[in-house]
Write a protein that binds this DNA or RNA. Structure first.
Length: 406
DNA sequence: TCTGGGGTCCTTCATCGA
DNA sequence: TCTGTCGATGAAGGACCC
């Protein structure tokens, strides 16, 4: 098997899919500004009580710290780590720059997160050379222009390219030749497969399936019985390296939502409704910004014990109006019958999206336009000009001092 | 130990109309 | 007219990803 960093000579015939993944992305961006922290454990995450780790340097990972871990635990595992609160705007800016680099190599770029993307470089061969050479150029350009490293997997399918980039991290490049895919896959633990999380891995291990090779030897019907029709068939195909999914540059949004965890659990329905309003405003603004309207409104309510319920309703007309989202979200919250149950998180999401331009607004007989959309569009304009939160619903305005009604 | 926020996709169950 | 079936759709929940 080719070794990371030493495989430029490997046979990349037919391997037109690249998976590019930034190494410890948020942490690397922060370290550009604080080079004195290079080589030390650094953790990116909200320092408050209820945060999780968003990114950690490889030095911090050596202590067992990893992303999505509660910050309290990360601090216990690595008390000497420097904690840096996240600056999402900064990361988004670097992400845009990196994606622009990808687009100079091929238009076939499918971003899957702010720090990773699939590229199909099949059409760039004549102009730029073989895929492995293109991967090397991308890595070099990202370091030169942004001062951060990335790892690239090169293969004949998306999921093998992704596994390859994980395999050669950090700062590596790995080509998996088409005729070596099975050799590469079968020794890997089954949890390495995309789509096998903690739960699925547990149920596979109960069946004695520990590696991808074990998985490949199990009849599809058995996997489908255990994991469901779709997941069973999908994993059986992946175990033999079969993955026909193309790189799709312009996948339309399917839903837009916002959620918030309270600093401390909240049981007061008035406060919960106020949060639903804030979230509805945020979601509606994003719908309008993206030119979407949506028909299905759902709320997510997580109790103090972490049990989560969701309720949804499909409207007669799609909307991008916060007041409509808010009214629906409140109805759903009330209908859930939680009374004064303490909640740690509430969320509002809109699904069934369609382009705003295609939506037809049908007024019922005798119904009059409420004018909320126009009011909210005016709020959008004010926000663009003077900043967010310059215009707010009265109930979201903080009182000037304690005890004063808003 | 104590679990963010933004998403996608899948499964199961209920309902409704043909 | 009644009953059973089937597909579409909606709702709820769960697993997973970064």
């Amino acid at each position: 098997m080719p070794r990371p960093g030493s495989d430029l000579g490997a046979d990349d015939t037919g391997c037109t899919i690249l998976h590019v993944d930034m190494d410890a992305f948020y942490a690397s961006v922060e370290l550009r500004e604080r080079p004195e922290l290079k080589g030390t454990p650094v953790v990116i995450g909200a320092p408050g009580a209820r945060g999780v780790v968003l990114s950690a340097t490889y030095e911090a990972r050596r202590f067992g710290v990893h992303s999505a871990m509660p910050m309290t635990r990360a601090r216990r595992l690595c008390p000497q780590a420097v904690i840096i609160p996240p600056s999402r705007e900064k990361y988004a800016e670097v992400s845009r720059g990196v994606m622009e680099i990808f687009h100079t190599f091929t238009p076939e770029v499918e971003p899957i997160a702010s720090d990773e993307a699939f590229l199909d470089v099949g059409g760039a061969r004549k102009r730029l050379g073989p895929p492995a050479a293109i991967a090397a150029m991308i890595r070099e350009q990202v370091v030169r222009e942004h001062g951060i490293t990335c790892s690239v997997g090169v293969a004949n399918s998306k999921f093998v390219a992704k596994l390859a980039s994980q395999h050669c991290k950090p700062d590596g490049l790995l080509v998996v030749p088409a005729d070596r895919v099975v050799d590469f896959l079968h020794p890997l633990p089954v949890g390495a497969l995309w789509g096998v999380g903690e739960r699925t891995e547990q149920s596979l291990v109960r069946l004695g399936i520990r590696t991808v090779g074990d998985l490949a030897g199990v009849p599809v019907a058995t996997l489908q019985r255990q994991l469901g029709q779709a997941a069973g068939a999908h994993l059986a195909a992946l175990a033999w390296g079969r993955d026909e999914r193309p790189v799709t540059p312009h996948a339309p949004d399917k839903s837009i939502g916002a959620e918030e965890t309270f600093a401390t659990d909240v049981g007061d329905p008035v406060k919960i409704r106020r949060e639903l309003l804030r979230l509805s405003e945020r979601v509606a603004a994003r719908l309008r910004e993206g030119g979407h309207v949506g028909r299905t409104v759902s709320v997510k309510l997580r109790r103090a014990d972490f049990s989560t319920i969701s309720r949804s309703r499909t409207l007669r007309e799609p909307t991008d109006v916060a007041q409509t989202l808010y009214a629906t979200a409140c109805d759903l919250y009330t209908a859930a019958g939680l009374g004064r149950d303490r909640l740690r998180l509430v969320g509002v999401r809109v699904e069934n999206l369609s382009p705003a331009g295609e939506a037809t607004r049908q007024l019922g007989l005798g119904e009059r336009e409420t004018g909320w959309r126009e009011a909210e569009q005016a709020m959008d304009r004010a926000a663009r000009r003077f900043g967010r939160d310059v215009v707010l619903p009265a109930s979201l305005v903080r009182p000037p001092f304690d005890g004063m009604a808003p």
